Each structure stands twice: as C-alpha cells, then as structure tokens.
Computed example of a mutant assay.
Amino acid sequence: MSTQRTSDSALVDREMAQRAIELALPILEASTRDERINQGGFMHVVVMDPARTPMNASFEEAILHEQSIGGRREDWDADYAGFARAKARISWLHGRDSFHVQTAEPYRLRPGDTTLWGSVCLDGIVVAVSGGEAEFDEAFSGMVAMLLRALAKQSLRQRPRELFFS
C-alpha cells in the first residue's frame, strides 16, 4: 500500500518522502527477512509533513506518505499500518520520539494512545515504522528521517533562494 498527500513544506514533498524510503529500502526489505528483527515479515512506514503541526492540521491531513514493505497486506498478521500511525501520532503531537514520551513523559499519554514505540521526531521530521522489534522500528524511522533531512538540505542547496523570499 502506498498513500501520498500534498505538502505545505517549501522543500519536503511526497516524492521526497518516497525517495527517502527508497534509499533505505535495501535495509528495510532485508530486515523483513531477518527473524531477529521482524518475525512477521512485514513493515509499514509513515512520514509526516514537517510543515503541518497540531496547530495547523489534523493528524490525517499531516500524513505525507505511507508505504508498506514485505508482501501482500492480506497476509499481514497484525495491523502494522495502524500501529505505525499510532506511533507517528505520539511523536507528531509531542515533538519527541515515542520511546521518550512513553518512558520519560508517560503523563503526556492520552486515553487510547498506543504503548508501542518506534517513531522518531528529528528536527520536526516525524517518521514511524511498525513491523519489527521496537528498537529496530525506531532505528529504521530514524534512518528514513535522516535521509529525508539530507534530501531537503540537498534541495535547498540546489534551489534559488528567491523561492522563499518572493
């Protein structure tokens, strides 16, 4: 499954989010075949629009791109998309990695919030992965977020500054 939405960011768009996942894909796909990391063989990635925050958008409106990895969705043994979205929501609402919110600031959790972790908030870039062990979901989320940040920096370097000051 792949869902794409438009972006409010001047630099980050759905194609860039998809490219960040594509760059990480060899590792993500390999991890779905490693039972020490991922017993189900499936994974779902959610990337949030860094320009859409709880102040200016609903959670659904802020989802920039989603992608499933590792086989047909009909074969999933759990709702990895739902888990990834729930993790993304925690990081998006609080501007922190889900592990941090759940371990250091559990008083911020609301009724119905997930107790799963594995999402990151890197300089306002929120990415969540679900499907593997939590520590690897977090690592893969961080990898995609770092790649997205690198692609945004590259785009800024290649684009005229007038784009932002028109």
Results as ranks from 00 to 15, higher is better:
Lys153Pro: 00
Arg89Pro: 03
Arg161Gly: 10
Pro26Asp: 07
Tyr107Cys: 14
Glu138Cys: 11
Asn38Lys: 03
Arg85Trp: 04
Gly131Tyr: 00
Arg89Asp: 10
Leu109Glu: 06
Ser119Leu: 10
Ile90Arg: 03
Val45Ser: 02
Leu28Gln: 01
Gln154Met: 05
Ser58Trp: 03
Arg157Cys: 05
Arg157Glu: 09
Gly142Arg: 12
Glu61Lys: 07
Ala84Arg: 01
Glu105Leu: 14
Glu22Ile: 05
Val47Ile: 10
Cys121Arg: 03
Ala81Gly: 10
Val127Glu: 03
Lys87Met: 13
Ala57Ser: 15
Ser166Asn: 14
Phe59Tyr: 13
Gly118Val: 09
Ser9Leu: 04
Cys121Thr: 14
Glu35Met: 15
Ser119Phe: 02
Gln18Cys: 04
Ala139Lys: 15
Glu135Arg: 14
Val101Cys: 12
Asp123His: 12
Arg33Gln: 15
Ser9Phe: 05
Gln67Gly: 03
Ser155Gly: 03
Thr3Asn: 06
Met48Thr: 02
Ile69Arg: 00
Leu23Lys: 05
Gln39Cys: 12
Val126Ile: 14
Lys87Ile: 08
Ser130Arg: 01
Val126Gly: 04
Ile27Ala: 13
Ala86Phe: 04
Gln67Thr: 05
Thr53Asp: 05
Ser166Pro: 13
Ala10Lys: 08
Ala104Ser: 11
Glu133Val: 15
Gly70Arg: 01
Ala86Val: 09
Val120Phe: 08
Gly124Lys: 06
Pro26Ile: 05
Met43Ile: 09
Ser141Arg: 07
Leu151Glu: 01
Ala104Leu: 13
Val129Asn: 01
Leu163Asp: 14
Asp79Ile: 08
Ile125Val: 13
Leu156Ala: 07
Leu23Ile: 09
Arg89Thr: 06
Thr115Met: 08
Asp75Ala: 12
Gly95Cys: 07
Ile63Gln: 02
Arg159Pro: 00
Pro160Glu: 09
Leu23His: 04
Arg19Glu: 11
Ser98Asp: 15
Glu15Arg: 12
Arg149Phe: 09
Val47Met: 03
Pro26Arg: 07
Gln67Leu: 03
Leu147Pro: 00
Arg89Glu: 12
Ala139Ser: 14
Ala150His: 10
Ala134Phe: 09
Trp117Phe: 15
Val144Asn: 02
Pro50Glu: 07
Ser68Trp: 00
Gly118Phe: 10
Gly131Asn: 04
Gly132Glu: 06
Ala78Met: 12
Met16Cys: 06
Asp75Val: 00
Glu22Val: 06
Thr103Ala: 14
Gly95Lys: 07
Leu148His: 01
Gln39Ile: 14
Ser68Tyr: 01
Ser130Lys: 02
Arg161Glu: 09
Glu29Asp: 07
Glu74Ala: 12
Cys121Phe: 11
Gln39Val: 14
Ile37Arg: 11
Asp97Asn: 15
Leu25Tyr: 03
Pro160Val: 04
Arg149Thr: 05
Ala152Trp: 01
Ala24Met: 07
